[in-house]
């Protein structure tokens, strides 16, 4: 079965990113397809490569990146929500005249249409948030 996942909260502040990760991983291990993981609201903060958690803690951002690499996951960050919260890729940084970008490996920035498409294309949409 084809799932899409929506993540609405940032890493570390709220469990929803952890729950979404565990759900996504379990679905993939069961042989389901994840059409897309869409990050919205503060969920866009899951995509910053500048995170430095304590060494004895999980690395929420890297964990998503690694899952993406292993399963070729499509991790999409909402551009409007990302711009508000300072998550930029190289193109956006250039376009907005900023001197740095901070998107982590495996994530891409795109529009809200990607969320609607994720709903249309998948059999199920599961929302994790606060």
């Amino acid at each position: 079965m084809k799932f899409s996942i929506m993540v609405n909260e940032g890493p570390y502040q709220h469990q929803s990113s952890d729950s979404a990760y565990q759900f996504t991983k379990a679905a993939l291990e069961k042989g389901h397809e994840i059409f897309r993981v869409f990050f919205y609201h503060d969920g866009v903060n899951n995509a910053t490569c500048l995170t430095v958690p304590p060494q004895d803690d999980r690395h929420v951002v890297n964990r998503w990146s690694e899952l993406s690499k292993k399963y070729n996951l499509d991790l999409v960050v909402c551009i409007a929500a990302a711009q508000r919260r300072g998550i930029l890729d190289d193109n956006e940084a250039k376009r907005q005249g900023k001197n740095a970008s901070n998107i982590a490996e495996g994530f891409r920035i795109s529009g809200l249409g990607q969320l609607i498409e994720a709903g249309i294309q998948a059999d199920r949409l599961v929302v994790f948030g606060d």
Partner: peptide
């Protein structure tokens, strides 16, 4: 911000004619 960003999804989503 949930109410505002929810509305933004609705506006974008409208273009998909669902």
């Amino acid at each position: 911000i949930y109410a505002l960003e929810s509305l933004e999804v609705v506006l974008i989503g409208a273009a998909f004619e669902q």
